[in-house]
């Protein structure tokens, strides 16, 4: 599976990329590192405040609604659906990258289209969740939910929830825009003229990162 590289190759002797990686992809990795620390700072400040509180709202009570069905007693069902959509769109993104390795333009476009649909579906779910919570009276600066031990909650819970899921949703939105641009470029044959589809790989790295952040947001807000 690993790349075929002679064991005694001197990567730092000059004349080749020491990371054996195209420049743009390396820079995307470094950008994602910095973005990871931004998200990390958000989530860790949330954790600090939560650890400094005597009690906190119960995610099972807050997140138990489902569109159309209304308040059903299957907690966290809706957010599981959102998680499934995002992981699924990550898979279609990898398949798009796989299709570009095969230089198969039709397949690239098909999988990119599914990835875009997945991203839009996720954003739609999030818009519904925000609207529903807002309808219940939750927003920045106001919190209708009590703590799990029955005491009054501060607004920390809603402030962090809307800030962090909003920042993540904004990343999803930019990811969808980037993916649409990639789709258009693939449709126009830009990548075929260039002879490679490396830009799709870079867009893919960004898209997987959005999925990766969601894994942590999911754990921090819905499970803890």
């Amino acid at each position: 599976m690993a790349q075929v590289v002679p064991a005694d190759r001197k990567w730092w002797a000059g004349g080749r990329s020491p990371f054996n990686l195209e420049y743009g992809k390396l820079m995307m990795w470094y950008f994602l590192m910095s973005d990871a620390f931004t998200f990390g700072a958000f989530l860790i400040s949330y954790g600090t405040i939560r650890f400094s509180s005597n009690s906190w709202p119960d995610p099972n009570e807050v997140f138990r609604s489902f569109p159309v069905v209304g308040e059903m007693n299957i907690p966290l069902a809706f957010v599981s659906l959102m998680t499934f959509i995002l992981i699924m769109s990550s898979v279609t993104m990898v398949l798009a990258v796989g299709a570009d390795h095969a230089n198969d333009r039709k397949a690239v476009m098909k999988w990119m289209a599914w990835t875009i649909i997945g991203g839009i579906a996720f954003l739609g779910c999030q818009a519904w969740e925000w609207a529903h919570l807002n309808h219940q009276g939750a927003w920045w600066g106001r919190n209708p939910f009590n703590n799990i031990d029955g005491s009054a909650a501060s607004t920390n819970f809603t402030n962090f929830f809307f800030t962090i899921t909003g920042f993540h949703g904004f990343h999803v939105l930019s990811g969808v825009v980037i993916n649409i641009i990639m789709y258009i470029m693939a449709a126009n044959g830009t990548f075929e003229r260039k002879g490679h589809y490396l830009m799709i790989e870079k867009a893919g790295l960004y898209w997987h990162f959005v999925d990766l952040v969601w894994v942590f947001v999911f754990t921090c807000f819905y499970l803890f």
């Binding site: 005597n54 600066g141 005491s151 920390n156």
Partner: peptide, 27 residues
């Protein structure tokens, strides 16, 4: 702080919980 955080409050009716609370209060 301890007494305040132990105080039980009534469950609010969701849907019109718009009473103003101090935004961003840490305590």
């Amino acid at each position: 702080h301890v007494e305040k955080s132990k105080e039980k409050v009534e469950k609010k009716e969701h849907g019109h919980g718009h009473e103003a609370q101090k935004p961003g209060a840490l305590d």
